[in-house]
Design a protein around this nucleic acid. Structure first.
Lengths: 239, 239
DNA sequence: AGTGTTCGTTAAGCCTCGTAACGGCGTGAC
DNA sequence: GTCACGCCGTTACGAGGCTTAACGAACACT
């Protein structure tokens, strides 16, 4: 920004590279340690710098963590979108499966990042503007809602298993629908969230090792059955 | 134990009380701070003791955390069982709803404890004997399995929505079924896990604030619809 | 070349974890 | 009753982390 004008883009690029390196190092350390805790000094050590140097780039540990959370949002959204787009745009059931696969696969590959987004929120974090905590939910729902909107437009969406919707939830559905850009029928909105719940539930449990007792092949099949069931309940043609 | 014989039960009781107070204080601090992180020195301060005194009771912070995790297991299991038993033993659909309510209610009341059990596992923790990490899954499944076993014995269980089960998963089902005491039909086992996934998914999302955008009344109705859908899919009579 | 900004360093303060060494108190033995 | 022992809590201490302050080197722009 204004700094670039005064100091030229040369430094800006170096600075951006350093910031990226810090975040990458932090992520690498999180992967190694298996925790979301990351010591500032360890990052510095890994980068062969001294800890105070990092304060030129991040105000404090929380600031770095916030940046990592924001990155995780983007990365998850990107992974899901990419998985979804890897199948033909007109095969919506397959797109649903692919998106769910993307969600789950990302969580499996990056359990710490997933925990950063969907775990117990960090104390001071949800403060800034309406809580980015719920931004995770926002984005996940937006992707799903878009898919269901497409299904409706294609005329392939049949009524969901559960057709009655509580009036209170119906209100939320239209409000959220406007937020998301396209209003879905309340029972579809409800079914969409049911689908998300079940995929998210499996994903959490698996990512944190609670399904380790299941053979990989069985887990794979089980996951698929869960995704198919969710589609079925939501009125999406059986994938 | 042997200590009691040498020093009398008097001291044992005092020691047990102190241990309980430490754990209670830790839980209280976790509730206050909203985190699962808890400083040894803060506990000591709150108890008007000096930090080193705590080492008489717990080898280190991880040891205390392990105890807290074990307690959380027990507390969640107790909460679910109590909720389940608060409705007549012969109304199994209602028992399912009550158990799910208990699960979700406990997570809402004690998000930190819930995170302790079902969050990203602590690095060194899952080591001791086959990982108590999965013990959470074990107990949750055991309660569910017992309920479905009852439903079969009562002859009220209809086939689940999804009747085909992958052979690999089928193998896991019988193995786990033996672990759990009573083998369920594979398709019911699968459906049971589907039900758990969806309830767990909602519970996680809600406990960590990702459903805060939904009005309480709507959330309540939505939760119930999720639980009813899960029952339906599993072949339990509609609650 | 000169000036000001950026970046990284060292030095230092505060806090936490965890250990070690010490003293008080109740318990059980003689 | 006294003595020895074990338990409990204390103070003292060292290692290491976060964070700020003060300093110096490298760089960019004039």
């Amino acid at each position: 920004m204004s700094t670039a004008a005064r100091t030229g883009p040369r430094r800006e690029r170096a600075r951006a590279a350093t910031i990226a390196e810090i975040k990458d190092t932090a992520r690498a350390l999180m992967r190694e340690s298996g925790t979301v805790d990351v010591r500032f000094s360890d990052i510095a050590r890994a980068m062969e710098m001294t800890p105070p140097a990092l304060y030129r780039y991040f105000a404090d540990r929380d600031d770095l963590l916030s940046a990592l959370i924001a990155d995780a949002f983007d990365d998850l959204a990107r992974a899901v979108a990419q998985a979804r787009d890897s199948v033909p745009a007109d095969d919506l059931p397959a797109r649903w499966v692919a998106a769910a696969r993307g969600y789950r696969g990302w969580a499996r590959r990056e359990p710490q990042q997933f925990a950063l987004i969907f775990g117990l929120p960090l104390p001071g974090y949800s403060a800034p503007e309406d809580g980015p905590t719920t931004e995770a939910a926002q984005r996940a729902m937006a992707q799903l809602a878009a898919l269901f909107g497409e299904a409706i437009r294609h005329g392939i969406l049949t009524p969901p298993t559960l057709r009655d919707v509580d009036p209170a939830l119906e209100l939320c559905a239209v409000a959220k629908g406007e937020d998301l850009g396209g209003v879905l029928p309340p029972e579809t909105f409800q079914a969409m969230l049911h689908a998300w719940n079940s995929v998210h539930g499996f994903t959490c449990l698996e990512a944190y090792g609670h399904y380790d007792w299941m053979e990989p092949a069985a887990r794979e099949a089980f996951f698929l059955s869960q995704v198919r069931l969710a589609a079925l309940n939501a009125g999406l043609p059986a994938p």
